[in-house]
Design a protein around this nucleic acid. Structure first.
Lengths: 353, 353
DNA sequence: CTGAAAGCGCTAACAA
DNA sequence: TTGTTAGCGCTTTCAG
């Protein structure tokens, strides 16, 4: 049986060549858009292709060229507004540059992340954009690099990797928010996160760690003692976190201002406030990270820290594509983007109980 | 130069074979997990593979088998909570069945959808899950089918395609919500959507169309005249939609109850209410589709229609994989899942102005 | 400008 | 059980 037989349903470049009456190489050249081709041959091929409904096979193309024009994106939580927006922006800028995107979700779980990276390597993506779940267990990223698959870190930094990264200046953002509280007269200011503090600070992701540091620094700069009881960490479990917040609200020396590390945390805090009868901004003040749409629909509208997600995503994508297109040598770079404090109605002078 | 030379960085199955001292076929058999292999040969190969850091090349594998074990997901808006959750659930169940997922976003734009589908076909995904932006322009889906790439519709139905689909029973859900309003004594009930009504109802996506129909039917069942001024459609533009809602709120015969087609629309409505000084549930009642997290953080908590997204996504994925694994013949099936009305604090008896 | 032929890394008959 | 031999559909020298 000849190799050029009809193989089933999908027409191949050979089929087109035969239908056009030219050689496979010529057909392939015009279909693939490379090499020379006479104008009449081109015409013939294009017609035949249209007639047969030819669709190029990217697998075969990648197989031959060794490049897939695809970048893999590995994020911790696609249901998180912040990452959803980032993914959206990443695919937009990648597409604009001729790259496709494949996505994987890790649920903040290192094992899932490891296997996601493995799958991407097997699919031979040209490069990776990753928001690593851990700043310690990064062996799979080291391996990716070793296999010649460059990566850029999204939103999270991992110093030991010496990798390219694009993130928010979380230290400055937290510092600014806390300073705003201080400026309004607050002294007992709480930081609330749903990350687990297990194993110590170094196991926190860099954004959370840096926000904590910015928080402490701002207090110190204002001459306020840092009270560890005011820094609350959950464990991904909202009920548990709510309990801790409730305790703090009902203690003798309750906080008068709260900085929520994410909008999801702010939601938990709001429900506790309602439950214990604290009202914003009369009784307590609140600022949260992430400018979620709903924050202007509550009463009062929330003062938030808005992050330039689109810029972040474009920057990370462009950095990676830069690497892919030849810039293998320049040293790794950590890019930090500034967040913006948007003042709305949730910060006020503390009431004197 | 022999073909088995070290080609650069990535070791191939041949490299492993040579290092293990067996034939390429044997090595391939154990590495690929198919065919027979003696236990000592297997041992040898596995060791060599580990030593060289062998990673299989999926491209080559797919090339040879004709299957990629990958499904393409094409959604209208990844930033939309509803789709984000669906994507998450789809990847989870696909992974559990040994499939990878590649994702594309279309922004509700048919041209982007067309090109996304084309890319997926070029990547030779085994099948597609699509929430089509249009129920009219579906030529690319017809083409996909013709090329032997099965697809299942997610959340949206397109009768003319005669395709498998899994969606919510939107008619019943809207009917139930409106009946709840009626039961509380409302007569002037509005439906608000940000879809464009341009070109008539048939251009609406099926969920919006069916919600509109359920809304009308419920009114008729209650003996209430359907007033077209009470069905508000935007055009994706929030400011414009807000203006229309404001007009309705300030007109002589304002509505006393609002059914929002999405949580994003509810946000727009809430801001208008605040602006014109209408309070829930004293002055107006509100129900919205989508059980977004924030709906319990506003005052009062919103009565919502909760959709079983996870079940929806599992069902759609399983249906597709079923098709992929041999069930090519059975007729297409439209699955409808029931939504649930969750009563919270935003529905009340209408005030008498 | 066009055609012939080799090869990307793997799977899959078939023979030994 | 193992090895041999064809391909999968495309790109890419290298001659003609």
């Amino acid at each position: 049986m000849k190799t050029n037989e009809r193989s089933g349903t999908q027409p191949t470049a050979s089929d087109v060549a035969r239908a056009a009456g030219v050689s496979r190489a010529t057909a392939a050249r015009v279909l693939g858009g490379y090499g020379y081709a006479g104008s009449e041959a081109r015409e013939l091929v294009l017609n035949a292709a249209k007639r047969l409904g030819y669709q190029p096979n990217q697998l075969a193309r990648s197989m031959a060229t060794g490049r897939t024009k695809t970048i893999g994106v590995v994020v911790a939580d696609i249901e998180n507004l912040y990452f959803a927006r980032a993914i959206r922006a990443i695919t937009d800028t990648a597409n604009a540059k001729g790259f496709d995107v494949v996505l994987a979700n890790t649920d903040e779980n290192v094992d899932l992340e490891r296997s996601a990276v493995r799958v991407m390597l097997a699919k031979r993506v040209d490069g990776l954009i990753v928001s690593p779940a851990s700043s310690v267990e990064v062996d799979h990223l080291v391996e990716a690099r070793k296999m010649g698959c460059p990566f850029v870190l999204l939103d999270r930094r991992v110093p030991i990797l010496q990798a390219d990264s694009v993130a928010i200046d979380n230290f400055a953002a937290a510092h600014e928010a806390v300073s705003a509280f201080v400026g309004a007269g607050h002294k007992r200011i709480a930081l609330v996160s749903n990350s687990s503090l297990q194993g110590g600070q170094k196991y926190l992701t860099s954004p959370v760690r840096e926000r904590l540091e910015g928080y402490k620094a701002a207090l110190q700069d204002a001459g306020i003692r840092v009270d560890s009881k005011l820094a609350i960490f959950g464990a991904g479990d909202n009920d548990n976190l709510a309990r801790k917040v409730r305790n703090l609200c009902q203690s003798e020396e309750r906080a008068t201002a709260f900085l929520a590390v994410t909008s999801a945390v702010a939601l938990v805090i709001l429900s506790v406030f309602r439950e214990v009868g604290l009202s914003i901004p009369g009784d307590v003040s609140l600022i949260c990270f992430e400018n979620a749409d709903w924050t202007i629909a509550v009463t009062p509208p929330l003062t938030v820290i808005s992050q330039p997600i689109k810029e972040l995503a474009s920057a990370v994508t462009e950095r990676l594509i830069g690497r892919l297109e030849g810039d293998l040598t320049s040293p790794s770079k950590e890019t930090l983007l500034a967040a913006t404090l948007i003042s709305r109605g949730s910060v006020n002078t503390p009431s004197l109980d």
